[in-house]
């Protein structure tokens, strides 16, 4: 079983994607989707991806809801910045943040969260001293941003992945 389906969650997600694409739940499309997903997951396993797994799926859903609310809020903030006619007051700049998290999938998720949120973008990761470099559109107070990233996202991601 383990040899045939090394990543059962990924297989299920691929089958669901196939069913959405063909827009049918007929036996034929389920079979076709299952075959394609199994072969694709073998290909993925051949790439030898790094280990690590989702430890607490329920916390992951809570984090997803939090991130969606944050994205909506930052959308508003960035709209205000762009439509603001005065150009001089706002300061944008780079910011180094030291991290405690080492789990590769946790880091990847953090990168996606930070970049998908308008106003912040992940630029670089330094694995030697585990710091990240962000660019922030509205860099009012550096310590507030560090607290936000570490307290709001990193702590939750460490609970989920480590």
């Amino acid at each position: 079983m383990k040899r045939w389906f090394p990543y059962p969650l990924l297989t299920a997600a691929l089958v669901a994607m196939w069913l959405l694409l063909t827009e049918s739940v007929a036996l034929g499309s389920i079979l076709m989707g299952a075959i394609l997903a199994t072969v694709a997951v073998w290909g993925f396993a051949a790439l030898d991806p790094p280990g690590g797994r989702l430890k607490r799926p329920r916390a992951a859903f809570a984090l997803a809801a939090l991130v969606m609310a944050d994205i909506a809020r930052s959308n508003l903030a960035v709209v205000k910045i762009i439509l603001n006619p005065r150009k001089t007051e706002r300061v944008s700049g780079f910011l180094h943040i030291p991290l405690d998290m080492r789990a590769p999938y946790g880091l990847a998720t953090l990168a996606c969260i930070i970049t998908a949120t308008p106003g912040t973008i992940w630029v670089e990761y330094n694995s030697a001293n585990n710091t990240i470099l962000l660019h922030i559109l509205d860099l009012v107070d550096e310590s507030t941003w560090i607290d936000t990233i570490k307290g709001r996202y990193e702590r939750r991601l460490m609970e989920i992945f480590e």
Partner: peptide
């Protein structure tokens, strides 16, 4: 169009691609 440097402009498309 309005923001001044590339690193500021890179934030702008996220509005369209998220919400």
């Amino acid at each position: 169009v309005r923001l001044r440097s590339f690193y500021e402009r890179v934030h702008a498309p996220t509005l369209g691609t998220t919400m």
